[in-house]
Design a protein around this nucleic acid. Structure first.
Lengths: 120, 120
DNA sequence: TAAAATGTACGCGTATTGCGTAAAATGGTC
DNA sequence: GACCATTTTACGCAATACGCGTACATTTTA
């Protein structure tokens, strides 16, 4: 478990040990023990902590390096609406697509569908 | 912790309790205790188990539903190579793109880039 | 059927947790 | 600088439960 991450998660929300412990339903000294490394949370505790801080147990444990939790969809089969995506990084032949290319593509698809609708 | 997932992960590899425990460096009865629910692994243990089974601690704990681990990139900003994706579900105006449309788009981008390369 | 292996359950010694309590440190106000 | 409230850190103890060995049940292989 990476102690600094635990502390940073809490401090990024400007929460005190007391408040955090209250939210978790444990004693202040208990949660303080987690951050200091004197105590280690149980599996349930670390899951609750991950929930509270909107991150993953893997991040707290140091198994991944980004704070965002897994989203439980769109991982195996990505599913997204291109027109609603503000930032994304799609690439063709290793070269990422620019916003202009994305808009051109969207226009391309719309035009193509309109043609098909008329001819069919 | 979801016990069935632990058992399924092991059985999907056709490993025995003994072999799995050996790989983890713990006693057979200890690992068996995890699967039966009589014992709960430590944080280090569950991280090692996640490594061994190529999954995430969040999956074992039941915090996410897919087995694949996080990849440490492509989470906040989706990043994928269109030509390498066999199955994906991109949509425009709510209508998902067919494979033909994807291929047309890839061809479209390639042609456009070739033109730009010549004119520029 | 016998033998080997796999899976399940129990008891015990010990490590470690979680809590209360209290001391140290930080931060804001005059 | 002095004062006080809040926050953070550290200690000691009772109780939990972890990990292991061991033994028993079950399944598989020859």
């Amino acid at each position: 478990m990476i102690l600094t991450r635990l502390t940073n998660l809490r401090k990024s929300k400007r929460w005190s040990l007391q408040y955090t412990a209250d939210r978790l339903g444990i004693a202040k000294s208990t949660y303080a023990g987690y951050e200091s490394g004197h105590r280690r949370p149980s599996l349930e505790a670390i899951a609750q902590i991950a929930d509270l801080f909107d991150t993953s147990t893997d991040y707290i444990l140091g198994r991944v390096d980004h704070q965002a939790p897994q989203l439980d969809d769109d991982t195996s089969v990505p599913c997204m609406e291109l027109t609603e995506l503000s930032t994304l990084n799609l690439s063709v032949d290793g070269l990422s697509l620019s916003k202009e290319e994305m808009q051109q593509f969207i226009a391309f698809i719309r035009a193509k569908r309109q043609l098909e609708g008329k001819t069919t």
